[in-house]
């Protein structure tokens, strides 16, 4: 076999050409992939809930004990927070750091409000004897809204982390994937809300 030297790349002309330009920026693509797997988690829960709900008509009476009023308020709160998130994203695109920070904090504040209201709901329900143990409906209710609330907490952490880093311009780009995440969490709630609260009354 002949020697490889003439094939060796370093002796050959390897130009210092730039990397390709990605179609979708990496962080955004990564977030999409992550959210795709989240769809599986919530999708699995929601699908099983819906199936079991069809078998168990008596859940109708149990779900009448959820607090529709607070649920509605919370839906409005989350929808508003999605709006402020969009505004934060817009500000970030325009590279206006102060405005971005303001809207991010506002979004986080709304998220916190959501959690407080949710906590009130939980304590009300548990005080009323509707603990996760009493029936499968309440197991699902607490598991699903609980998992969702955990995602809200995760979103708050991300937003606070991003506002802290806002000193650098490049960090403005974190806002876009966080926005994706936040809208996703919002959409999950929009699905949970009718399933848990509305179809019952």
């Amino acid at each position: 076999m002949s020697s490889l030297t003439h094939l060796h790349p370093l002796s050959a002309s390897v130009s210092r050409s730039p990397r390709r330009i990605p179609v979708i920026p990496a962080t955004r693509l990564g977030m999409w992939i992550f959210l795709a797997s989240e769809v599986g988690t919530f999708g699995g829960l929601i699908a099983t809930y819906v199936m079991m709900r069809m078998w168990h008509h008596e859940w109708l009476h149990e779900s009448a004990h959820t607090l529709l009023s607070i649920g509605t308020i919370n839906t409005v709160v989350l929808l508003t927070s999605s709006l402020t998130m969009v505004l934060a994203h817009e500000a970030a695109e325009a590279k206006e750091r102060a405005r971005t920070r303001r809207f991010l904090l506002l979004t986080a504040g709304l998220g916190l409000l959501f959690l407080c209201l949710k906590a009130f709901e939980y304590s009300h329900e548990i005080a009323g004897g509707h603990t996760p143990k009493v029936s499968v409906f309440w197991s699902f209710y607490f598991a699903m809204t609980g998992l969702h609330a955990l995602h809200i907490v995760g979103g708050l952490v991300l937003m606070l982390y991003a506002t802290l880093g806002l000193r650098h311009d490049c960090v403005l780009r974190r806002v876009a994937p966080i926005g994706l995440y936040w809208h996703f969490v919002d959409v999950v709630w929009i699905i949970l809300f009718p399933l848990m609260y509305v179809t019952t009354h």
Binding site: S37, E38, G40, T41, F42, L45, P132, S139, L147
Partner: peptide
């Protein structure tokens, strides 16, 4: 993996609650 693991995570959460 990422497409299919979600439902099991959900199932495991429910089992943990149980």
């Amino acid at each position: 993996f990422m497409m299919s693991v979600g439902p099991l995570i959900a199932g495991a959460v429910l089992m943990l609650c149980d």
